[in-house]
């Protein structure tokens, strides 16, 4: 150990405030170094003197003064602990409180679990019924579409017009203006292969023959 390090540790050697291993190292160094030894002895001497002075140089209460002080203090009230916290110190109360809390927690968790299961079943049912409804709807739509396709009086509605219809839902006046007029008459032409005779029949919306 070097002198610099030793002198840093010297003040703590006096009261054995360092680990045993370090104390041993410093002590070994002191044995071989005159300057560090002198320094150590100076520390020791000063500390001893200070302690001696401290022992001699004491102040104390006068008895009369002390009695007055004690009377004044003991006339005060000792502060009670918070009334809320007092029952918490009793082990029986604590145990019962814990039991109650745990049981409440279990009930709460159990109820939640049951509710979730019920909700799950209901949801499944709801999903099934929704699917059924959708199926019915789609089948109906298909039927309507087939019928519409077959309907010769079906108005010719282009994609653009469909958009307009969708936008102007509930505004019949606008729709009428923008849409093409509905087909009111249909014609049927019959041509003879042999003679080349052409017969044209006109029908109205209700398939009634018109001259």
């Amino acid at each position: 150990m070097k002198c610099k390090k030793s002198r840093e540790l010297l003040p703590l050697i006096l009261g054995n405030e360092l680990p045993e291993r370090k104390i041993e190292k410093v002590r070994r160094h002191i044995e071989n170094c005159k300057n560090c030894k002198r320094e150590f002895l100076e520390y020791k001497s000063v500390l001893k003197k200070i302690k001696d002075i401290g022992r001699d140089e004491k102040v104390d209460w006068e008895e009369k003064e002390w009695k007055i002080l004690i009377d004044k203090i003991t006339s005060q009230n000792i502060e009670r602990k918070s009334s809320i916290l007092i029952p918490l110190e009793k082990p029986a109360f604590l145990a019962w409180t814990l039991v109650l809390l745990v049981s409440f927690a279990l009930i709460f968790v159990g109820r939640n679990f049951i509710n979730k299961r019920e909700i799950g079943i209901e949801r499944k049912n709801v999903v099934v019924s929704k699917l059924e409804k959708e199926e019915i709807r789609s089948s109906k739509k298909e039927e309507i579409a087939i019928l519409e396709e077959k309907n010769p009086f079906k108005p010719v509605v282009k994609a653009k017009q469909r958009k307009i219809i969708a936008k102007t839902k509930g505004q019949p006046e606008k729709m009428e203006k923008k849409m093409e007029p509905e087909q009111k008459i249909i014609s049927m032409t019959i041509v003879s292969r042999d003679t080349g005779l052409k017969i044209v029949w006109f029908f109205n919306k209700n398939f009634e023959w018109e001259e």
């Binding site: 840093e8 003040p11 703590l12 006096l14 009261g15 405030e17 360092l18 100076e42 520390y43 000063v46 500390l47 003197k49 200070i50």
Partner: peptide, 16 residues
Amino acid sequence: RVHLSSARKKIKKRFQ
């Protein structure tokens, strides 16, 4: 420990 070491050093110095 740190304050104690420092205190003892200062006291020794002042005493000397």
